[in-house]
Design a protein around this nucleic acid. Sequence first.
DNA 1: GAGTGGTCTAGACCACGTT
DNA 2: ACGTGGTCTAGACCACTCT
Lengths: 229, 229
Amino acid sequence: MKATFRDVKADIMAKITSGEWAPGGLLPNEMDLADNYGCARATVNRAMRELADEGVIERRRKAGTRVRQAPLRQARFAIPIVRAEIEGQNAIYRYALVKRAVLEAPHWLCARLQLAQGSTVLHLTCMHYADGAPYQFEDRWISLSILPQAEAADFSTLGPNEWLVATVPFSDAEIAFSATAATSDLADYLGCSKGEALFTVERSTWLKGEAITFVRQTFRPGHRMTTRY
Amino acid sequence: MKATFRDVKADIMAKITSGEWAPGGLLPNEMDLADNYGCARATVNRAMRELADEGVIERRRKAGTRVRQAPLRQARFAIPIVRAEIEGQNAIYRYALVKRAVLEAPHWLCARLQLAQGSTVLHLTCMHYADGAPYQFEDRWISLSILPQAEAADFSTLGPNEWLVATVPFSDAEIAFSATAATSDLADYLGCSKGEALFTVERSTWLKGEAITFVRQTFRPGHRMTTRY
DNA sequence: GAGTGGTCTAGACCACGTT
DNA sequence: ACGTGGTCTAGACCACTCT
């Protein structure tokens, strides 16, 4: 009758959902729980650490472990490459480069990315299609001071999204979701009416504190981003 | 000079970002790494397990550990209570119950929640204000077969959001983000123009497989949901 | 069959924060 | 000062899966 850390986790969770351990309530310490479950303290520790990560309980040295008053509800989102997202829906993916320009970073971009005024950036606008229908409009800005090789890259067949993931696989990012009304340009590209409500994702990316890229992705009308938790 | 699991994690991460261990590449096994770092295998194991959780590496018994080809980019979102969200911005929160009705669940709701046809539900519509200005419109449906006590609850001062979190603290949920155009009703409640683009969150919640509630939260124009990862 | 990661143990020491 | 969680160790056995 040896308990695994999953058993312990499930049992603690059950005692919380059943109300036996109420929000704000103090749980037994790790040693006592280990005795009760007949397992090592490390096993209880792992179970409780994961529950704390998930926002179910709160742990403080000396003060002990408590059930969170307002359980942290949190969701995890996969941030997919557009190609993978479309192909995952069994649709045919097509990519097109709309515009490419090298220019001095506009002020709003410098502010967003904490980029030095006067930096040179690569500005790309692209379209992504699913089964021939407009799927996403991508407005991409890449810092050429950090990624000078982007200027030589061929974005006519490979999207900047994929190029960046291959070139700078790991980075810090800030992501924002919102709803925006279609401008007439966007309406043309996405084949919708001007003013329609469009789901928008904006992402700023840094590598070791240096700004890499900013992107605004605007989806066709009706797009939904979904997850479970 | 013994390495902690954080040291090991950071060093592995550095070797990956520097390109020493390329995407798809095989990493040394846990025993060898433990020897190199001069620590126990369990320490290496924890470091690598966390990196695997974060989507940086992929581990398979016997096949070993590899750097992910396409690193899983994932973001975590806190799903806040509206009150906390508003008060966190140092704004004054105000809540108002707009409508309350007990009725038979409409078909679309039964489909969404896998709810039995003919179930009785409580339908609430509410407004949330920040510093007196419309912030969010809440369209809430609660299953009375699972939560009969909701019928007696007083939602005139406490929002269903908070009541539910207190009553059913833990549950499974599906969440979807999208953009919708303001109907004339919504425009009136949120003080915006009809047709404006509004950020919308829909959430369906189950407890042990039983449908509890469905909610559609529509935010005032310009609302952004932000996170880092 | 054999090599890898997955997990558990019993013990130890440490860091932190409450008291 | 003291009790709690945080982490590490050295060893062990197991589960999976590749060959």
